[in-house]
Amino acid sequence: MTPLLEVDNLATGYGQSKVLRGVSFSVKPGEVACIMGRNGAGKTTLLRALMGVLAKTGSVRLAGEDITHWAGHRVNAAGMVWVPQEDSVFSGLTVRNHLTIAVHGRREEEEGLEAAGALFPVLGERLEQEAQTLSGGERKMLALAQALIVRPKVVLMDEPTEGVAPVVVEQLIPAIAASTKESAVVLVEQNIDTALALGQNAYLLEQGSIAVSGTVRDLHDRGVLEQRLAL
């Protein structure tokens, strides 16, 4: 099966500070690739670079098309979406406004709102509420709904369950699994349980490069994840 996302020899950073170098991996449809590593390893930086909001060298291909130097809005339009770890809502805008922006040009607004309500019923009940007044868990649901209701080719998720109550995590994981069966998912995750529940392959970032890769299950069984993440 042809990969939906192909990353080859990617390097990026902030100004003179190089954060990532020589990062290569690919993700096929229906696959969840977990990017793991300690704090400061460059996981979020990798997602920013893939999403087109951080300059980079190397090559990024989305469904065969070279998107290495595309701006973020073009990357999004091409079918790659991002679920940020935090700072995921616009102040002053309602839940409906957020979902309207997400589905613009992809599907009918009402259809998108219904899909969001089906994914997370609480969002359907709070369409007119300002998103910044939602709880942390509901914000995560909104960020996920924005990404998943547009039937994306590639989903970039930055620790979607971090800081969320266990009862909410129980809702998020099945929703993510059900909505990404045909997408390629890049999941930045520190939580091994979440990685085991969702992921197939894992890539451990150390000092800006992929130090270890393999299946999540195998790396876990051999104790590599626990050792490398120092948990």
Binding site: G52, H73, V81, P84, D87, G92, L93, A102
Partner: peptide, 14 residues
Amino acid sequence: RATVANPLLAETMG
């Protein structure tokens, strides 16, 4: 309004 509130997030949402 979305761009003014959060330009980076707006860009990644298309």
